[in-house]
């Protein structure tokens, strides 16, 4: 475990905590895309199936449980908690997210490292995670007033992806056999999707203004 990887995981954890704080404490999910959250729940459910078959470390298992538990509870909160559900921007959150799932599944069936059930699902989860943020980014663009917590949530998620790229660069140079093209390319695509958001986030921070994305 290197410092970039740990920082990436902690940033990911922080993003989830920020979102849970908003939903649990403020009882609001305004500006949060349920579509993206559903995709993340699928991502973690398909990637972490190896919880039953392989053991890496206590850290690894605990973090997997945290991400599984938090992603599913966020979805359930947004769908079934009366107060939280009322704050959901249903009319704005219209991205056809199921249309992302099938192409990712087909791609995983075609391009993978090993053709086994767990491996194909694991690869599918990488492809799906790469595009899972799209409904959220579209919703942000449609939302006039992006509150601080929602902005921070997306900023932290993007930061987590960026740190993972540094982690791969570090591992490539320190672990001679560490070459994983599928992970790298889907991770890179995922990080690039945040580029636009990062630009406007840094602008609003620099000018000390409220975050607003151009339509």
């Amino acid at each position: 475990m290197n410092i970039f990887r740990l920082a990436g995981d902690m940033t990911h954890l922080a993003s989830v905590l920020v979102l849970l704080l908003k939903i649990h404490t403020i009882k609001s999910c305004a500006g949060v895309s349920l579509k993206t959250q559903e995709l993340y729940a699928i991502v973690f459910a398909t990637r972490y199936l190896d919880i039953f078959t392989s053991f890496y470390s206590i850290y690894n298992t605990l973090m997997k449980l945290v991400f599984l538990g938090s992603s599913f509870s966020i979805v359930l909160y947004m769908k079934y908690h009366k107060t939280v559900h009322r704050s959901y921007d249903r009319e704005q959150d219209t991205f056809r997210h199921w249309f992302l799932v099938l192409p990712c599944l087909l791609l995983a069936l075609l391009i993978h490292e090993k053709f086994t059930f767990l491996e194909v699902l694991w690869t599918f989860s990488l492809y799906l995670e790469a595009v899972a943020i799209l409904p959220q980014l579209v919703l942000l663009q449609r939302t006039r007033n992006i509150d601080n917590l929602t902005g921070q949530y997306v900023f932290l998620l993007g930061g987590y992806r960026g740190l993972y790229i540094l982690n791969w660069i570090y591992r490539y140079f320190t672990e001679p056999h560490f070459v994983h093209w599928i992970t790298w390319i889907s991770g890179l695509v995922q990080t690039l999707l945040y580029a636009d958001f990062f630009f406007y986030y840094s602008q609003s921070w620099k000018n000390n203004k409220k975050l607003q994305l151009p339509a």
């Binding site: 995981d9 190896d50 392989s54 890496y56 690894n60 694991w122 056999h177 560490f178």
Partner: peptide, 10 residues
């Protein structure tokens, strides 16, 4: 080397 080294990532 472990084939699944990347799987220790989250």
């Amino acid at each position: 080397p472990n084939d699944d080294d990347v799987k220790d990532e989250l």
